[in-house]
Amino acid sequence: MNFIVPLIVVTFVAVGLIKKVPVFEVFCQGAFKGLKTVVSITPTLLGLITAVTMLRESTALDSLTSFISPFAQRLGFPAEIVPVAILRPVSGGGSTALLIDIFERLGPDSFAGKIVSVMAGSTETTFYAITIYYGSVGVKKIRHTLIAGLAADLTAVIFSVLTVRLFLI
């Protein structure tokens, strides 16, 4: 799998050169946009990471995890992933803060770390997308959008456990 990332980079640059794009200039413009993204997520993430750190230090998170643990173990996944799975469709920042907490304590290459990685990479903040898109055109009756969106999220949770068990341990 090591070749995927370099291959993508080389392909993009090659296509850019063939299409006579001023590659370096465009790269710098894009990188600057990336910097703006980082700045724009800073306040939210700072607030939420602080909140999650407080939750952890107060041992509230541990108590929740150990409460879920027996059920989770029977189904074959680590209890730590449950708070992330629940928060993911509702709050992008909140679930990211929990993910970072797992990376910090257990490591990104741990079983739970890999599962939350796949989960975070394969889902979006469902409620946010619904609000933005319907809100922009003033549609009020969204029918079964939420059910379908949450069905996709639930499938993603199940498959992130399955794919990690099958391919990544």
Partner: peptide
């Protein structure tokens, strides 16, 4: 919590900027 959040954001900025730049090339190409 607050201090580590800023450290984290600074250290991920490099990778995000890099990919953002690559994707801009892809888009323009």
């Amino acid at each position: 919590g607050a201090a580590s959040a800023v450290e984290l954001l600074i250290s991920i900025a490099g990778i995000i900027c890099f990919w953002s730049g690559m994707m801009e090339i892809a888009d323009k190409g």
